[in-house]
Design a protein around this nucleic acid. Sequence first.
DNA 1: CACCTATTTAGAAATCTATCTAAATAGTAT
DNA 2: ATACTATTTAGATAGATTTCTAAATAGGTG
Lengths: 94, 94
Amino acid sequence: MAFEDTFKALSDPVRRRILTLLKGGMMSAGDIASNFDMTGATVSYHLSVLKKADLIYEKKEKNFIYYGLNMTVVEEMMLWLSDLKGDSTDDKQE
Amino acid sequence: MAFEDTFKALSDPVRRRILTLLKGGMMSAGDIASNFDMTGATVSYHLSVLKKADLIYEKKEKNFIYYGLNMTVVEEMMLWLSDLKGDSTDDKQE
DNA sequence: CACCTATTTAGAAATCTATCTAAATAGTAT
DNA sequence: ATACTATTTAGATAGATTTCTAAATAGGTG
């Protein structure tokens, strides 16, 4: 939802790994969870954090929920870093 | 020190604001602290987190400690995000 | 309908984080 | 040496985060 949330979301290694997994295309919650050594409930929690940060979106189909990467927010993140570096391509933020 | 630490360091708004302040050039711990409504000890804690993440470096002079931005790590961060977007300019990480 | 599968929600415990106050360090200057 | 200034370290605490187990939802299927 906010800039703040995006940075928070990216601060956890599990969540970054989820994003990396999604680079390969949409995946169901279960498929994502099978990549980790933790309960589905925990992975579901991480997915909710990523969703709140708008880093992923979901699409329900049958009784599966598929998740996909949302690039828009990643670009905003890069703009912030770019601005920090001094590339005054775009304006300040936060 | 590690990639992990950098993301963690960036996840706090106070620390991001410190980095933004340092965009304008090096500043002493005291000058940085005067920009916040919190004790010097707390700001010192945040500086230590940024330092551990290699996002800033320090330089002692007289009995002041000056802090400056370290761009190298910011670039690594951008590479990670860039890679997530699919720009396979450089290799994977973590 | 009764059941099975996929996923989330709720509640609790353990760990981590941000903040404060008080004390320690260290360099300057008198 | 004593005192002053700048900053950090230590110890404590309130609040946030991650993880688990158990239960709730919700959509298919026999």
